[in-house]
């Protein structure tokens, strides 16, 4: 499978990326290369094999419901690009 221009445009929109039109062809061929790799993986016969997403025989560790964190806002916000009144400021997002 290879990527069309409209596929590329849609991916860019979903990823919130503004693409340089001049780089479009190069990007398309790189992404198509990734898709070929996936195709190779998909060619493996997995009939009758249970999906394995996580280590078998291990289970989630649970912690007790206790507050163990203190307020470290000043530390965290020291490295933030922009803050005001304790809020992180980001480019305006309104749906």
């Amino acid at each position: 499978m290879s990527l069309s221009d409209s596929d590329l445009a849609r991916l860019a929109r979903l990823a919130r990326l503004r693409l340089d039109p001049a780089a479009g062809d190069a990007l398309k061929s790189q992404l198509t290369g990734i898709l070929h790799l996936i195709e190779e993986l998909q060619a493996v016969d997995t009939q009758g094999i249970e999906p394995l997403a996580q280590s078998p025989h291990l289970q989630l560790r649970l912690r007790e419901d206790r507050v163990t964190e203190t307020d470290r806002r000043a530390d965290f916000q020291a490295i933030a690009p922009q803050v005001e009144n304790g809020l992180y400021l980001v480019p305006r997002v309104v749906e």
Binding site: Y88, L89, V90, P91
Partner: peptide, 10 residues
């Protein structure tokens, strides 16, 4: 979305 000079506060 209010009062942050065109930015959003998180």
């Amino acid at each position: 979305h209010e009062d942050f000079h065109g930015l959003s506060g998180i």
